[in-house]
Write a protein that binds this DNA or RNA. Structure first.
Lengths: 221, 221
DNA sequence: TGAATTTCTTGACGGCCGTCAAGTTCTGAT
DNA sequence: ATCAGAACTTGACGGCCGTCAAGAAATTCA
């Protein structure tokens, strides 16, 4: 592992100098998780901020009725554990490594010291939270007001736009995609088949999708 | 108006001294809105943080299909405009005064200067955002996985718990409550009538509800 | 590569809940 | 207090989509 390995590539520390990164590196703890393993559970004490140094992490929340909701798909450089920043809070979500994943964690009190010392960190974290808030606001509105068909169409076009390509592989299994969109794997299969019959997309083996008519997809209600 | 009028009562400035509050007071702009008026629209340039000095504000988001989603009910001391903190962002929500409301606003650049100067502000804002993130995560999970019946039962018990009383007045019209819970006024009427038939609650004139069996309400699926 | 397991697809069915409509109650301004 | 308009309630109806089931396809691991 290189020096500053995980600390260096994290956007929230982007404005710090090499010396300050050394300080931080001495504080963080490193972990490695194999694919499919659980990083933290819904009942774990919530006292650390987590940084994804390498890999992908699914973050789920458990509803009262036992159903799971996929909230975030964390990529390298993403952070989780915002609730760790204030006291007396219990974690209500759990995380699972999608691929072999390296994680750094910083204890709450240490991170609070860091933010006091380097205000740029707080501001960077604020930006991350602000973006996440926006994303969640849109997701809430979307699941509450739009049909499964519209949500799926949106997801496809947004994913394609993010990847800047019309042909891409779905990054999630249908079951995960279903809990993310607030529906079921069966409904996703059906709606994709419908889009294909309408000529809007083409499905290829290996969860690969090609978009034929993005404009029309967005008009889906 | 007293000195520091709006600035003083806002939690995010709680750790500042009188002199620093003077500085802030000189930066903020004051506004007053009569009940029912629009504070900001979905297309307004998004360059200020808003502080509710007195009153109540409904914050809606507009879905692609034209439907409205009530996201927050801001009270005195609450803030809005997190997205104002980073650039190149357009507002996608709009706010409406529920009662006559006083608001202070701070321009983005001014607020960023403040956070650099007084790190405690950033940390307070982080706490606010963290709580809001948690709330939104639960709301997303709830609308995506639970029935209207369960969501309404939850809302009732949570509101009662927050007010520490079994008898309370619904703070919103059924139409607003409906968009908040991701359903319709008709469904709310029906479910409340159902709860009453089951003996779980008693409805009284003036949107007042008395909870008879909170435990059973929470078991609603 | 081949077999076992997981994931996916498609059909049939039913229930939840959104929509429309009409009547009733509530509210607030005069 | 009265009245106009808004908000609410209740019924009837229908469609979306979740559930269950069974077979097909894909992925994993030896």
């Amino acid at each position: 592992m290189a020096e500053h390995e995980c600390v260096q590539l994290v956007p929230i520390f982007s404005e710090l100098g090499s010396e300050q990164l050394d300080t931080i590196e001495s504080i963080v703890r490193h972990h490695h998780y194999p694919a499919g393993s659980t990083l933290f559970g819904a009942d774990d004490p919530l006292d650390s901020l987590m940084i994804v140094a390498n890999g992908q992490v699914k973050v789920y929340q458990l509803a009262a009725n036992g159903r799971e909701q996929l909230l975030y798909l964390l990529q390298t450089g993403d952070i989780d554990g915002e609730a760790a920043l204030f006291e007396n809070q219990r974690r209500t979500s759990f995380g699972e490594a999608l691929v072999p994943t390296d994680v750094c964690s910083i204890r709450r009190s240490d991170f609070q010291d860091l933010m006091q010392k380097y205000p740029s960190i707080s501001i960077n974290v604020l930006n991350v939270f602000g973006k996440r808030l926006n994303q969640l606001e849109r997701q809430t509105t979307s699941t509450a007001t739009e049909s499964v068909e519209a949500r799926l169409a949106n997801y496809i076009t947004e994913t394609a736009a993010a990847l800047k390509t019309d042909t891409f592989k779905l990054p999630l299994k249908k079951k995960d995609l279903a809990t993310f969109l607030g529906t079921t794997p069966e409904s996703i299969s059906r709606k994709l088949a419908l889009f294909e019959r309408q000529g809007l997309i083409t499905q290829k083996p290996g969860k690969v999708i090609e978009i034929n008519d993005a404009d029309q997809l967005l008009l889906t209600e």
